Simulated assay, not measured.
Amino acid sequence: MKKLILPAFCAVALAAASCNNAAKEEKKDSVTAGSENMATTEAPANVLTDAEKAEGWALLFNGSSLDGWRIYKGKESNTWGVQDGLLHCIGSATDKSDMRGDLITNNQYDNFELVADWKIAPQGNSGILYLVTEEFEAPYMSGPEYQLIDDENFPEKLEDWQKSGANYAMNPPSKLAAKPVGEWNHTRIVLNKGKLEHWLNGEKVVDTEMWTDEWQKHKTTGKWKDYKGYGTAKKGHICLQDHGSEVWFKNVKIRELK
């Protein structure tokens, strides 16, 4: 009997150990799967956290309408809309009609911090302008531009001051920080009493001072030498450029600085 009991006991023990190990592996797999799901879960777009609200942030795009925005100088346009919770500009290689137009905020801002996520179509070109006024034919005649472009595949040769993150035609980006075309990029613009910073995907790519002698020299010797109103306003609209390319925006937020 003793010889029979020992093997039987061992068999039971081995079976129990095997079950425990299987349970542990199953639990481990469950935890791993849960961690993977958590890692791939994105924060909701176009909403403010409680912390952001406390810091004074405001949404410029609500994810469902163009409330708070209008076309520059009130012209008609059919290129801007909302697509799947994204602010979307329709692209076209051939449509150069009068129905294309730049989108500006109803409100104007002077000292601010602006953030936005964006992606652009292959060979695309767009921009985020600020301090825009409506006394000229086009927004770029007054407002500085944070350049958005397909750096790698744009069909024309690009100067450094035309690449993503540049203060267009004024300050080239210190490094190329844009993600491959079609992926989301994160932009941050800080303007406070003339001190200007452009950030792209966590990298500071422009750090300059507006309205200084050096700034004035750049203006009067470069592309803007014949545009007397360029960069002169101390307060203006935020503008999203319709350059004929398809482009998407989300999480467009602003915080006014004192």
Rank of each mutant, 00 (worst) to 15 (best):
E55K: 00
S92H: 08
R188H: 10
D160R: 08
K193E: 13
P180C: 06
E197R: 11
L176V: 07
W118K: 06
A178S: 15
L59Y: 01
K235Q: 09
S64F: 02
S142F: 06
F154D: 04
F154K: 01
N106L: 10
K157E: 15
K24T: 12
P139Q: 07
E209Y: 05
K193N: 15
A233R: 02
E36G: 00
W118H: 04
A177M: 08
H88M: 12
N37S: 07
D95E: 12
K204Q: 14
F112K: 06
I104N: 03
T49D: 07
K73S: 08
W199A: 00
W215N: 03
V190L: 15
G229L: 10
A116W: 01
E42V: 03
K235T: 10
L48W: 02
A33I: 01
W80R: 14
K235C: 02
N78T: 13
Q241R: 02
A17E: 02
M141D: 13
L129V: 04
L48Q: 04
W161N: 10
G182R: 12
T41F: 10
L14P: 03
G236D: 03
N171E: 12
N171R: 12
D117C: 01
A169H: 10
I254G: 02
A23T: 14
E246Y: 04
E26V: 03
P173N: 11
G34T: 07
V82P: 09
N192V: 12
V31E: 10
K157D: 12
S18V: 07
D102V: 05
V252C: 08
A51V: 09
Q83C: 05
V252F: 05
I254R: 00
H218N: 11
K234W: 05
K119I: 06
E42G: 01
S77K: 05
G85F: 09
E134A: 06
C19D: 12
L4E: 14
T212A: 02
W118T: 05
Q108H: 07
S64E: 15
V247K: 02
D226Y: 05
G222K: 03
G127M: 03
G143D: 11
R255N: 11
K217S: 05
L103M: 13
C89N: 15
N167L: 15
I120K: 00
F249S: 04
Y146V: 07
M99T: 06
I104D: 04
W215A: 00
D84F: 06
M99H: 08
M1T: 14
A58D: 07
N20I: 15
A138R: 13
G229Q: 09
G81F: 11
D102M: 04
E145A: 11
T133E: 12
L14I: 15
A54V: 03
W80A: 14
A54L: 07
P173D: 09
